[in-house]
Design a protein around this nucleic acid. Structure first.
Lengths: 211, 211
DNA sequence: GTAAATTTTTACCATTTGGTAAATCCACGA
DNA sequence: TCGTGGATTTACCAAATGGTAAAAATTTAC
């Protein structure tokens, strides 16, 4: 007896078109926000007709929600990789680097996320609670343990993470401003990487315990 | 012979209603973005009718532009106050504090600004170029001079400023996320202040030159 | 107090937008 | 090759939205 709720596995066309639509939607939503984006824009960008898009998704909101759901995993991944058993300094500095690389490689995703939080997370509140919160608490505990062991300087782990998030994502979310102020500088990413490495490296170094 | 382009000074009613409209618009634009905001929302929030609002402003865009223009001055003020003649450490740490206080006291303004940049600064590009850029360059030179004099640790002043902007504004722009992750913590602002003071204090301290 | 100017309301309008119904097209297995 | 179910298009629609015209109400100047 087949499960009444079972979904048939999607056809090749289904998979391709859903992917195309989501990619177009990422472009449009990240550029104009949820309310600013229109189905016509997404349809044009995807090379499909509007009703055809609504054949694959029940509505504008479902596209947006699907995008945010998929994004969440990617977004949290760098933090997931933070290893309690690794060297504290290396782990944290590598985390900064991964987040910065993500800002460069996935700016659309960064802006989509930023826009959603900026508007009060109307479509993502529950997911933040269920996915982000436990992970955040867990990693804060790891960092706190490292501090207790004297491996890195003592501070509030939560605000340390906020500082890592904000400084790295700034390069994606405020890219037009950064580009204007750094005008023509081709080495942007390397500069940012060097700066953040210096900053967090200095910050994490525990005050010399000797003497 | 009176100047044909001269504007009569606005009446009491004019001043009051323009102020009421801009305040309502700040609420709505900062919550929903330019495209997401509607004139009806602004009108309701302001307690006026939609056509009445259009008596004071030529359209939705003019309200938004006016808001951004007014905001720019407020926004740049903390940086303007950075005094080349003051003590470098104190000046920079005070700057961080002023920006953090602004994130707490003017979250709507912070979100309005963030949203505009996030969408590629469609209504603010020229102002960034004309107002922000020169100020930024000037203060970068000041900071560079401090570094040359060995008063603070050497680093890229431009990325230092980015780090100050991002870490402080994060508390306004990502407030829902911060609130969720810090849940119920009443001391948020003081914690953030302490953390950022520690962070930038450590960062700016020049490596001991002796030995 | 009254006329002129300013302010506000009422009644609209054209366009855009998210979404639907139904007809048509087309890929694919028998 | 033909029929069937999935995929796509055409032709719509109702609501929302930015904006306007002109009448009505109110304030201001004399």
């Amino acid at each position: 007896m087949p499960d009444a709720t079972a979904k048939k596995k999607p056809s090749r066309i289904q998979r391709r078109n859903r992917r195309v639509i989501l990619d177009a939607a990422l472009d449009v939503f990240s550029s104009y926000g949820f309310r600013g984006a229109t189905l016509d824009q997404i349809a044009t960008e995807a090379g499909l007709s509007k009703p055809n898009i609504l054949y694959y998704f029940s509505g504008k909101e479902e596209i947006h929600t699907t995008l945010l759901s998929q994004l969440m995993e990617t977004w949290l991944d760098p933090l997931v990789e933070l290893d309690a058993l690794g060297d504290p300094r290396t782990e944290l500095l590598d985390y900064v680097q991964r987040k910065l690389d993500m800002a460069r490689d996935l700016p659309r995703e960064s802006r989509l996320f930023a826009g959603e939080i900026l508007r009060g997370a109307p479509h993502m509140g529950p997911r933040l609670q269920s996915d982000l919160k436990p992970l955040f608490d867990e990693k804060c505990a790891v960092i706190a343990a490292w501090m207790d062991a004297g491996k890195i300087a003592r501070m509030d782990p939560r605000h340390l993470i906020f500082s890592i998030w904000s400084t790295t994502q700034h390069y994606a979310d405020f890219a037009p401003q950064v580009a204007l102020l750094l005008e023509g500088d081709a080495e942007q990413h390397q500069q940012a990487s060097d700066h953040l490495r210096l900053m967090f490296s200095t910050l994490l170094t525990p005050a010399a315990p000797e003497q």
